[in-house]
């Protein structure tokens, strides 16, 4: 009896829809969720504010006047992060698709292309992003080659594109492989060439399916734009370091975190919503 009550209030068996609130059960579920959240948050809050070091931590990390003073400057430099993110994302979307398509070409003729594409993803997924940023950002301009850009913003963008396109091409590839081979057979049976079948039948379905995981990778990219600070490019994180050095107060770091969250949280929610919607559609289809 108790078990049945529990199931009625909780979620349906097999319901793995990606969401936080809502679901079957109605008002009772919501009440339980609200109560347990309030209890947990209160307990956590008490642990923090009753800790011995809390007064000092509050002064150095959550100091109101410092927050108000540094926030506008950091926000202004955050424009560099957004610019970097948008630029890198555009190149990643295209370059990763090229890599994924090369990897998916069948037949022995294309073996070298498949091999190169696989090697690329292995290498750039294997190198820590921070190392690549250092290697390219300091190494390439150090060569002093004429005609090669020496801007560190440029090489930071290149590093992020190289690393993230390796991840994103794997996401694309999983999408391409999830399209049933009978779809390609149907397209080929209409006399379409392999490339036409890919372009009109396989890729449109593949890309639609991988939008949520793609967004997921872009949330990671948004955060990693902070790595360019290491090259001396002034962006939000670098600016917060400057502010901290000027006041010996860590509040600017918290301000930077708030700014990043303001961008990534909506994107995270959107991703979850898209995943839930895709799942609903799959269920409706089956």
């Amino acid at each position: 009896m108790a078990l049945r009550e529990h199931q009625r209030a909780g979620s349906r068996v097999g319901d793995r829809a990606s969401r936080i609130l809502g679901g079957p059960g109605g008002g009772r579920s919501l009440a339980i969720a609200t109560l347990s959240t309030a209890v947990v948050l209160t307990a956590l809050g008490l642990v923090v504010v009753t800790s011995p070091g809390w007064p000092e931590v509050r002064e150095s990390f959550f100091y109101g006047p410092e927050f108000r003073e540094s926030f506008p400057d950091i926000l202004e430099q955050f424009g560099t992060n957004v610019q970097l993110f948008l630029l890198a994302e555009a190149f990643i979307l295209v370059w990763a698709l090229v890599l994924a398509v090369l990897r998916s070409l069948p037949g022995p003729v294309f073996f070298p292309l498949r091999l190169l594409s696989a090697a690329y993803t292995d290498v750039f997924r294997g190198i820590p992003t921070i190392l690549l940023v250092f290697l390219l950002g300091f190494g390439v301009p150090g060569l002093q080659l004429s005609g090669v850009p020496s801007s560190q913003f440029f090489w930071a963008t290149v590093s992020l594109v190289l690393v993230y396109s390796a991840y994103v091409s794997e996401v694309y590839r999983s999408g391409i492989e999830s399209v049933h081979p009978s779809q390609e057979a149907a397209a080929r049976s209409l006399g379409l060439t392999q490339l036409q079948a890919l372009r009109h039948v396989v890729l449109p379905q593949a890309i639609r399916r991988v939008v949520p995981p793609l967004l997921n990778d872009f949330i990671g990219l948004q955060k990693d734009t902070a790595l360019v600070a290491l090259l001396g490019v002034v962006e939000a994180f670098r600016q917060s370091q400057i502010e901290v050095a000027g006041s010996f107060n860590y509040t600017p770091y918290v301000a930077t975190a708030v700014i990043f969250l303001a961008l990534t949280i909506p994107m995270t929610r959107l991703t979850d919503w898209l995943i839930a919607r895709n799942r609903r559609r799959e269920l409706a289809r089956a």
Binding site: A186, S189, L190, G191, L192, V201, R208
Partner: peptide, 30 residues
């Protein structure tokens, strides 16, 4: 293949295209 039509057990229509686009894809592209 343009001169031989085949119909499959599992239909294999293209789910992301309307009926009209399913039917016109071959004539237009091939």
């Amino acid at each position: 293949r343009r001169e031989i039509g085949i119909v499959f057990q599992s239909y294999n229509l293209f789910p992301h295209m309307s009926v009209l686009r399913n039917v016109t894809l071959g004539p237009r592209k091939a």
